[in-house]
């Protein structure tokens, strides 16, 4: 067992974990944060995307011990970081119908937030490239792209 101390969605946590435990497993199984989902076995789908010290990562491809001392934000902690009930990107996914079954959505939203942080005014192509690591088997991506554009406009490029 290894001792880890980290911050998850604003709360400090410490636990003894097996070194082989994946960050996504830790979030779901130890902390009950099932908002972050697992969509594949190959680190291709991006459904498990969270922010680690402010940048997006696939939490199925990070060990919990590697997050020692880090700050993790999951989809569950996103809304608390702004004044509204939903984060602007969450709101825009709802507004633009950027989902169907919703399974890819937590990861899509986390990656979209990262994308807009790096590039507040992305072109359509930049959005598609920025979301390259996130797969959706329902929407055909068009409404997801619209949702990101909507969020960029609504935020006025400020966020």
């Amino acid at each position: 067992m290894a001792r880890i101390n980290l911050t998850v969605d604003g709360a400090s946590v410490s636990d003894d974990v097996e070194p082989r435990m994946l960050l996504v497993q830790y979030l779901r199984e130890k902390l009950g944060k099932t908002g972050t989902v697992i969509g594949c076995d190959t680190s291709n789908c991006g459904a498990c995307t969270v922010h680690l010290d402010g940048t997006s990562v696939k939490s199925c491809n990070v060990l919990a011990v590697q997050a020692e001392g880090c700050e993790v934000t999951t989809i569950e902690g996103l809304a608390d970081t702004v004044d509204t009930d939903l984060h602007q990107v969450q709101e825009s996914f709802r507004e633009c119908h950027g989902l169907q079954c919703g399974f890819c959505t937590p990861g899509m939203i986390m990656q979209s937030v990262d994308l807009l942080k790096e590039n507040p005014h992305p072109s359509e192509e930049e959005i598609r490239l920025g979301l390259e690591g996130n797969l959706c088997r329902c929407t055909g991506y068009h409404n997801i792209v619209k949702a990101v554009q909507h969020a960029a406009t609504a935020a006025g490029g400020a966020r």
């Binding site: 680190s43 991006g46 995307t49 696939k58 990070v62 990656q111 690591g133 996130n134």
Partner: peptide, 9 residues
């Protein structure tokens, strides 16, 4: 190379 998340790690 890969995607944004993989490039971060």
């Amino acid at each position: 190379l890969a995607d944004a998340q993989v490039r971060h790690r």
